[in-house]
Design a protein around this nucleic acid. Sequence first.
DNA 1: TTGAAAGCGCTAACAG
DNA 2: CTGTTAGCGCTTTCAA
Lengths: 354, 354
Amino acid sequence: MYVILIFDLCGNYTNSMTLKKIADKLGLSIGTVSKALKDYPDISENTKKRVLTLAEELHYRPNSFAQSLRNNESKVVGLIIPEITHDFFAKVIHGVVDAAKENGYVIILLQSDDFYENEKEQLDLLLDKNVDGILISLSNTTTNVNHIKEVIDRGIPVVLYDKIFKLLDCSKVIVNDRKAAYNATSHLIRGGCKKIAHIRGNLDPQTTIDRFLGYKAAIEDSDLEYDESLVYTIDGLSFENGYQVAEQMMKDHKDIDGVFAFTDIIAAGVLMRLKELQIAIPSQVSIVGFSNWFLTNVTTPKLTTVDQPGYEMGRKAFELLLKEMKAKKEMISHTKEIVELSTNLIIRDSTKVV
Amino acid sequence: MYVILIFDLCGNYTNSMTLKKIADKLGLSIGTVSKALKDYPDISENTKKRVLTLAEELHYRPNSFAQSLRNNESKVVGLIIPEITHDFFAKVIHGVVDAAKENGYVIILLQSDDFYENEKEQLDLLLDKNVDGILISLSNTTTNVNHIKEVIDRGIPVVLYDKIFKLLDCSKVIVNDRKAAYNATSHLIRGGCKKIAHIRGNLDPQTTIDRFLGYKAAIEDSDLEYDESLVYTIDGLSFENGYQVAEQMMKDHKDIDGVFAFTDIIAAGVLMRLKELQIAIPSQVSIVGFSNWFLTNVTTPKLTTVDQPGYEMGRKAFELLLKEMKAKKEMISHTKEIVELSTNLIIRDSTKVV
DNA sequence: TTGAAAGCGCTAACAG
DNA sequence: CTGTTAGCGCTTTCAA
């Protein structure tokens, strides 16, 4: 059985059925077989049938290298993610993978670990692999975007998602962080909070800036006064960081009654510490996170948060990229698009509702 | 500037610097340039320098399609994951991506969503892309493994990780689920639990079987008696499923005082429901999960769980695959390896310690 | 309706 | 030390 399979499937040990082999067995030329397989109109129905049947029987698969070499197209898209183990990015990956599959593409996944150097290196890797396009969410430590610009200038379609750089000339998929943060903060204000702290990262990706601006705008649009000392800038975006800053915060301002955290994991850290400090949530302090990580469902109380449509973002990013790749192939000029997805404030038990 | 770049970098609009172009500019032959770039000993130092310098200047990148076609090697590895949005699998991906990068490989990521049909389809996709090897964790619904066997028989290196099928002739990386479950259950017994339930999935991947067997063995090795009615088989492995089964469980057996759940997310569901039912954790009922998802840190009380080394598993799986790919390339026969990684019981606050 | 041939960019054996 | 050549498998134009 084993031996038969080998011979049957391949005829040689590397298992490659080629057009030539099919052509030989059928007494046809390579070109004819190729065209038959692609259903060219100038091939007789009869030959087409013969070729198709044999190809099927022999499990013929075109050699993708040869195809790519010839067509100058890989049908591979590169995806750079800052950090896979974030619920949000995991959802993005899922969306991209699904959309890619539906369109006959496959993705090469790379992770920057939020380091600029990695991001640069990985772009190179993707170029080396001749991907047809690249999806990228900037790392938190990326401040210079020449590496991206270079790729774009080389004519390779690039779409930015989530963590973008506004001035880069390419399509982008984002969430309106500013508005989402505004809504989240307003929710705290409506719940009666008078002294609302904001916890943010120390770096300046657009998301950090926008969420801060949304927070500030909401405060200023209300009866409250914006107080810089209520904005806590922390070194990292981990649970630990949130846990630690919480205590400091309460020391500085005993009467804080609301917290809008840059991300859920920080919110969870704050929640944990405040509970340990015997502070009642939400009656004494209300907390809002950001991203709708799964963990917000299992804390006590459950965390109010902003849902970011990760899966949808992944799909949309791929679709924009696809458009651009098509345009490039057909040498049509293409205008960049910026798609803004809407977020959803998910009100749970860590905030007061009036 | 823009125009200069274009000409400087490419000389044509598709941005491809080829050996031929370099050879022409230098008045050398293509072959010589190729060899100079690969530091062949039979090329003069002088020409090597000239070639290297110009290649650098012109940003020469070998065309990977041509290389792959020639060498019959893609330097791409396929990775099939049942579900990306699981902390454990996300860690695995991270490990694989890192190990791959260190060895000049890149990974194509596909997700089976735990459906057999997808898994099959995706294997085909990977074969079409001529990946050099495949890493796969079987979907929960996979009971027939002929699709995998076919790939192996074609001579393509395959390594199974986590959810494996024992009889498949390939290298594997696993965790000793049986032992881990045994330890987890024993921990409950040592803590004084007398009536310990086990919650498991309704399908039969090896992990489900092994964790169940570990649970059973621990019970039987103790003074307790194994009681089939304490084993709850649920339809899915979500938080909701855990949440729902919890109540049923307590109705059936009011005196349950310990729960060993197949996975953390179920444990979290159980915990949530039991708390709602005013059951004290861990004093009345102790709970142990499995996988050490991040969420186990943010529940109240924090969940005791079994840490699976996902990142390490990813790395190891890639290393095994690498060995096999090398052996194949050098036509050396290669014996399959089975690597078992050790787990760690992480004792937190959802179980009693005596 | 089919075949022949050129060529995508690269490697490696062989010749000079 | 360098050049020539064949060929990886496929697509597509042109000729028959």
